[in-house]
């Protein structure tokens, strides 16, 4: 319980940090796409990559909001293992996304960050949610 209480603010802050950087990238999406493409890229290629990035970031923001919601209502607040996994995934995603902002990586690399930084923790939280609903632990 003591360790869990230490993990609660850490998970909250890491989730907020990931949310912030995703919104920042979404706000500045045309520049992010221009930075990850070569100079010779056509308008069509730019449009496709821009749509993919906007969709990916929007889904990511939605997942973070859902995770934050089930965390704040207390369903995943006292699961230390889940919190550790979530902190690890979201912190790595924040670090790597900040490199995308600063350096301008390849556009395809975003999907690896999306998978390990957003999909893995939401799947873990969904399993906890299903367990709570099936076993009526609320």
């Amino acid at each position: 319980m003591y360790y869990a209480s230490e993990l609660i603010p850490a998970k909250f802050l890491v989730l907020v940090a990931h949310f912030t950087i995703c919104v920042l990238l979404l706000w500045n999406s045309p520049q992010s796409v221009k930075a990850c493409l070569t100079q010779e890229a056509s308008e069509e290629v730019f449009r496709i990559h821009h749509t993919q990035l906007v969709v990916g970031l929007s889904v990511s923001v939605g997942m973070i909001c859902f995770e934050l919601f089930i965390f704040l209502i207390g369903l995943t607040m006292f699961h230390p293992t889940s919190a550790l996994l979530s902190i690890g995934c979201h912190a790595s995603a924040c670090f790597l996304l900040s490199y995308i902002v600063l350096d301008g990586w390849q556009c395809g690399w975003f999907w690896w960050i999306f998978t390990f930084g957003s999909v893995v923790p939401i799947l873990n939280d969904s399993c906890i949610l299903v367990d709570i609903i099936i076993n009526k632990k609320y």
Partner: peptide, 14 residues
Amino acid sequence: EVLLYLNSYYFGLF
């Protein structure tokens, strides 16, 4: 109480 507890940490970061 939960909101205040989390806000105290968030405000530090802010």
